[in-house]
Design a protein around this nucleic acid. Structure first.
Lengths: 296, 296
DNA sequence: AGGAAATATAAGCCCATGGTTATCCTATGT
DNA sequence: ACATAGGATAACCATGGGCTTATATTTCCT
């Protein structure tokens, strides 16, 4: 049955003697006087019950027993010190990283293009973007911030308004050119997005809310706005363009307004941040995104 | 660059919390009050700069970081404790063992027969007998005691007188029976022992010192008294019987006095013990051997 | 809403720790 | 024999470590 360990000070004093080669050198390294180390090692020997130093030789050298113990001390305490360093390092890392969850469309056309400016302003921080294939982007293990479209009344985090949206039909220029006036929804292929998120406006809702006649189901259906946007760019039909997704493409002339009325939904985009365990990076990024947010 | 380790008390307090499952249980195990452990873990967290316990749950549980650190503490301190235990164990072992060096003849006919009585008196001690093939039994690495025949004026250890010797010619009863008077040395085969040790009386010295006529070289020569004694037992000749070697055999009638005058050499048997690093067993055995020593 | 259990906090205090200085002792080299 | 270097010992003391008690706070269950 082992007795309690001796005081750490005795262990480190002896390890220093073994490492530096003499009691005097160890004292110098530890910034104490030589008697302090001499007494410390003697106390350790009393505790251990065996001689750890051969003092007949000058400078004193560890006995075989002492060498064995010095090795165990170095390894044992080294292991603990490494674990502490690793924890601090991980904490520093965590404090310089933030993970954001959002839909793949928002990620591709809104968030990622903005990150360059964020890194320019904060080169020491790193944003990890996680796209949720479907459903509402959620907070949780490893997710610090979620960018959500919806009513904004969530309770799982701190909610901050990013921007209101506007939805208008857009299409490829070539498709637009086929009609003198607005592109009639009933005469072209409509590009649908079907997602479990029920907040996003669908073609049916758009037509109903703008007083346009309903269109019998046709066209193509995708599961995300990246594919839908690509199909529109390819001239495959008419899509509902959300300003945060297609605003830049429309400004660049790659997509054009279809001449139909725009729709301003009541829902908006929000940033939701976890209230616990938020490090410096999370707060910095959230603040930046809120102040720099505009839909296009 | 790692900072100094925190006090051992904080490490062991936290490790106890991780192992026992609560701050209260750790306090009970360490025989302090619950606030003592609560404060100790808080100090460790301040030192480490990370949360080690999830206190929202009752009882408090280690965080992932805390679990990692607790493991490192257990392994690191365990390694040091094991090293200390091993040193103490080795020391205990050394304290219950003694190694004795002597000639093979003394070992066989004098020392080994006595060890049974020693073990009876000291069942917790162990005597390791090392026979030196030739030369004076020496102290040194691993040899605590030497049993030597000689002048007794050695300086390599503590010298204590065991017993004086007596040398007399002895032979098998059948050889003795061939002569009405003393067995004449010149008429039988003499059994010689040739050894680098120059203290032991040879046949030449014996005949000269007792005034008997010298005998031209003949007979057999052996390198130790075990073989010589066996040859005498077999009736192969006349040997010089040292009381410590052949006393018991003569008392048992296996060998008989040849009727020639005995010789009391000036040299004697001594015990020489190392003066350094003598453990309890060495002193105990040396004392016992000195008080229980008699030549036969 | 209230009680039980676990943890946190603040204040207080005793005593042991962790050194220091002064000096002695021992080993080794010249 | 002497000088130097390294280590040992004794006496001393200031400080803060390592608790304690008392009480507050928080979480969870009934």
């Amino acid at each position: 049955m082992s007795r309690a360990l001796p005081p750490l000070r005795l262990l480190t004093a002896f390890a220093a003697v073994a490492r530096t080669g003499s009691i005097q050198a160890a004292a110098a390294e530890l910034n104490v006087t030589q008697p302090a180390i001499s007494q410390a090692v003697r106390q350790l020997e009393d505790h251990a019950g065996v001689a750890l130093l051969d003092r007949a030789r000058r400078p004193a050298r560890p006995t075989d027993a002492g060498q064995a113990l010095a090795t165990a001390i170095a390894q044992g305490l080294g292991q603990i010190a490494e674990a502490l360093d690793a924890l601090r390092e991980a904490d520093l890392q965590r404090d310089s990283r933030v993970t954001v969850a959002c839909s793949v469309g928002v990620a591709t056309y809104w968030l990622m293009p903005r990150l360059a400016a964020f890194y320019k302003a904060h080169p020491d921080l790193f944003v990890n973007v996680v796209t949720t294939p479907n459903g509402v982007p959620a907070l949780g293990d490893g997710i610090d911030i979620a960018v959500r479209y919806g009513h904004g009344r969530w309770s799982d985090g701190l909610v901050r308004h990013l921007f209101d949206e506007e939805v208008r039909p857009v299409c490829a220029p070539a498709l637009r050119a086929r009609f003198a006036g607005p592109v009639p929804p009933g005469s072209v292929s409509l590009l649908h997005v079907r997602t479990p998120e029920t907040s996003w406006v669908t073609w049916d809702e758009y037509l109903r809310l703008t007083g346009l006649p309903p269109v019998r189901r046709g066209g193509q259906t995708f599961t995300n706005y990246v594919q839908t946007t690509q199909a529109a760019l390819d001239g495959h039909g008419l899509m509902l363009g959300w300003r945060s997704i297609t605003g830049a493409l429309t400004a660049a002339g790659q997509l054009v307004d279809a001449g139909l009325p725009p729709l301003a939904p009541r829902d908006a985009f929000y940033l939701v941040a976890r209230t616990k365990r938020g490090g410096r990076a999370v707060e910095t990024f959230a603040d930046w995104l809120v102040t720099r947010s505009d839909p296009a």
